[in-house]
């Protein structure tokens, strides 16, 4: 199991090398969303007694932690298909679970960094919500765990970097827009709500939003996120062997 630290250490060293570039790129999209949707369009909009900006920030936290956790899959693909660094891990005496744990933690760390940036931007726009609520951070962690595990599993199964990009286009991007990020899911038709509730991001958005507004949290969302995360994690452990040809 202790081989996971080597994998995580490498991810952290890479992160340190690219820190400023990564921070800047993590800040661009949320900043534009806050300007366009929060400041310009949503100025006079209130949802459930909160300004649109207050509504938007938890959604962006959910979306950004999902995106950034999922990016670990692209990083693995690049190191696997272009730099062949993955071979170094394959030739090392470490178990599949160590490898997946190291990479998953790498994805979670990136996700937490992106959340820190959104909180910073939110404060810049004068939005004060309950960032100190422990359930807010538990939901962020579980959301990152779900998508980081999914990304690691996907990275092991795909045969090229393009396959991973296609999955992002067809699954992650639609989820980012439909998973309760920019609008309340309750405004959609009931049949659509039922479908959208199958998405883990919807549960993450709901949980993060409830916690950041100081409302009672729905433990069902946490259970769904934990369960989905564990399933994806176990699948990822299983499919690491698929990367052997």
């Amino acid at each position: 199991m202790n081989g996971f630290f080597a994998v995580y250490y490498r991810e952290m060293m890479i992160l340190r090398c690219r820190f400023l570039k990564m921070i800047a790129s993590m800040a661009v999209s949320p900043f534009l969303y806050l300007i366009a949707f929060g400041y310009a369009m949503g100025k006079s909009v209130t949802i459930h007694g909160h300004t649109y900006m207050e509504f938007l920030i938890p959604g962006l936290v959910a979306m950004s932690s999902m995106n950034r956790a999922f990016v670990i899959g692209s990083e693995i693909n690049i190191s696997r298909f272009y730099w062949h660094i993955f071979e170094e891990f394959q030739a090392a005496p470490i178990s599949n679970i160590s490898y997946v744990l190291g990479e998953t933690l790498g994805g979670i760390t990136r996700a937490f960094l992106s959340v820190g940036i959104i909180i910073g931007l939110g404060l810049l726009f004068g939005v004060m919500i309950d960032y100190w609520n422990i359930m807010f951070w538990v939901a962020v962690f579980l959301n990152s765990f779900v998508f980081s595990s999914l990304a690691v599993g996907m990275a092991m199964m795909v045969r090229s970097h393009a396959d991973q990009a296609m999955f992002t286009n067809f699954v992650i991007t639609p989820m980012a827009f439909l998973g309760g990020t920019f609008f309340p899911v309750s405004r959609l038709p009931v049949w659509a709500q039922k479908i959208i509730l199958l998405l883990p991001l919807t549960h993450a958005s709901n949980a993060i939003r409830a916690a950041s507004f100081g409302n009672p949290v729905d433990m069902f969302s946490y259970v769904i996120l934990l369960g989905t995360g564990l399933v994806f994690f176990l699948i990822a452990v299983k499919v690491v062997s698929m990367a052997r040809d």
Binding site: G3, A6, R10
Partner: peptide, 25 residues
């Protein structure tokens, strides 16, 4: 020693060797 030079080019010599050492506990 693989045919392709599969080093982490952004990392230093020390860091590349450290990662290998950690992988082998």
């Amino acid at each position: 020693v693989f045919q392709a030079i599969n080093l982490d080019s952004e990392l230093t010599v020390f860091e590349n060797l450290t990662i290998h050492g950690l992988l082998f506990h």
